[in-house]
Amino acid sequence: MKYEILEHTADLKIKAYGKSLEELFMNAARGLMSVMYEEESSKEGKEVSDVVLETSGPDKEALLVNWLSDILLESDTRNVYCFDFSIHTINEQKISSTMKCIKSVAKEDVKAITYHGLTIKKHNGKLEATILVDV
């Protein structure tokens, strides 16, 4: 499983999985897009733009919040669905990535990515992250 969406009284939680930090981050981003847009909106005939993101943070948890916040900002400001995430370099304080974007209509207004109850844990040799988004 790449990610799942869990319940929370006021908001939504994304639980993402990955064998590496890189895979974990990408799956969390896919989870975020699944909250905001209908699954894999049709890309045919649409103009695709490339976006470069350089994000930093004091540790891997903050880095994940900051990186997802940067993706949300791009998506919400330009009304674009983001996909084909590609991570060039990543450590616990810095991530350099690119993604593709196409114009799309969101189904959910995500206000922000929060730190509330945020965890990145190792479980059965796999990484798991829980992120709460404010909708």
């Binding site: 943070g57 004091p58 948890e61 903050a62 900051n66 916040s69 900002l73 206000k111 922000a112 990515i113 929060t114 730190y115 509330h116 945020l118 404010d134």
Partner: peptide
């Protein structure tokens, strides 16, 4: 929403400088 996001980012970094530790980062 973005003003809150932007300043949480600043404060999570700055808290250490002011020697503030809290039970939840969302309270930064």
């Amino acid at each position: 929403h973005q003003v809150c996001t932007d300043y949480l980012r600043v404060m999570v970094q700055a808290m250490a400088k002011y020697d503030i530790t809290l039970p939840d980062r969302e309270l930064a």
